[in-house]
Design a protein around this nucleic acid. Structure first.
Lengths: 231, 231
DNA sequence: CCGCGTGCCTACCAAATGGTAGACAAATGC
DNA sequence: GCATTTGTCTACCATTTGGTAGGCACGCGG
């Protein structure tokens, strides 16, 4: 590093860190952000350390290797997912409103922190085999539950019979992930008009995503008055 | 490299490379494959050189920097896309079969070489701002054309009026990209059964993708077998 | 007050990275 | 036949990488 590095002023602010927040958590946060933005290989330990405001060895004191840091990031993400999963499963019992709720909640989980979507999409591309077991344990149950729900709905005639339940679920999930992960870029396709603030654009995107998911699943209600499935 | 590297046997096979294929093309091919699989930062020039069977400096003779190689890879991809674009545009004139044809052809383009989808998805994540202009020139026209087609269809009452044309196009495009790019992993969600060969699974995926795109766009034809739909 | 664990640091390391210099051989043009 | 160009190589380089060694200050329990 060309910066002469002033001897780190070893004297000043000796104990001036009272309300010191958990450094490990800070590292985890910055790592998440940077991995999501540039990928695991695109970020160096020094980058992360700098973002946190510490030196590399201090970082390695908390996480013994770069790969362990990556796994920690992933595990925290999955832990958060496990927090919301039960709510999703409870909502996934019957009716179209419930279905909407499930997708909306899933969507909300990723919109709340878009890095989640980016991170997962990256892992999907970079380490598919390593991700497989996690998928198996964390999304398989959710996916089969929704699939079963779909199959029941098909039997009852409420859903299109030509839906391929598992594949449908996979596609909608992927669509959620990728459209959130790449929102900025994709959004730039539509704008031109100043009426498109990122705020309203995101709203349009999630709304349309829900519409696609819904329309391609549910058969139109008994009769619907001219046009539309108005929500 | 720890391999003692036998003096490269400078004597043997002196001119034994008559049908020498274009080395630059070979490099481009291997680079495409590796970048798609591991990302730009996850691949070293040495990796690519080894895959081709040459040394690093030889590679740098053809492409003066790693970044130029990346751009070349991207440009070749876009060139191929430009080959099929006209056909797509011609097919995008009217009617639902034509619409299917457009999506099918797009799908086929990426299925023909799945690295294309992976590559673009990666660029979308890694260098969004750099990709923006390419999107502007290479997909914007196509997207607006389809959007206009949708709007016309809406006026004629053939399509759902609550479709958000631009956003719909963006989502379907993204779905194509991501579901092809991550096919292997996602496919593993459904299998369990030995009846699911990757072959048939891919067919199921593309079929369901088309179904989703179609169903969420077109209103059911006048009457359709089985009950409901028609208002 | 003393020892010890915690946490951060400087200093360092071997390996790998992207890239250059320059030798050499085979084709190619004249 | 000779000069030049083309393409590959070995050898090297500076920088960056993930990671280690070990020291130093602090706080806390005895």
């Amino acid at each position: 590093m060309p910066t002469p590095r002033i001897p780190a002023a070893r004297v000043e602010i000796p104990a001036a860190r009272p309300g010191r927040v958990d450094v490990a958590a800070q590292i985890l946060g910055e790592a998440t952000r940077l991995f999501a933005a540039h990928g695991f290989d695109g970020v160096s330990l020094a980058d992360i350390a700098q973002a946190v405001g510490i030196r590399k060895p201090s970082l390695l004191y908390h996480f013994h290797s770069k790969d362990m840091l990556r796994r920690a990031v992933l595990e925290t993400l999955l832990a958060r997912w496990n927090d919301v999963l039960p709510k999703l499963l409870m909502a996934a019992t019957s009716g179209s409103e419930q279905f909407d709720a499930v997708i909306s909640k899933t969507l909300a989980f990723f919109i709340e922190d878009r890095d989640r979507a980016r991170l997962i999409l990256r892992e999907l591309l970079d380490r598919p085999t390593e991700l497989q077991p996690m998928i198996e344990t964390h999304v398989r149950p959710w996916a089969t539950l929704v699939s079963d729900y779909i199959r029941r709905g098909q039997d009852q005639g409420r859903l299109w019979i030509d839906v391929d339940p598992e594949v449908y679920v996979a596609h909608v999930t992927l669509l959620v992930l990728s459209s959130i992960a790449t929102f900025e870029v994709i959004a730039a396709l539509a704008p031109k008009s100043p009426a498109n603030s990122p705020r309203v654009l995101l709203e349009r995107h999630t709304h349309e995503l829900l519409r696609i998911a819904r329309t391609s699943l549910f058969r139109p209600r008994g009769r619907d008055p001219e046009s539309t499935t108005h929500e």
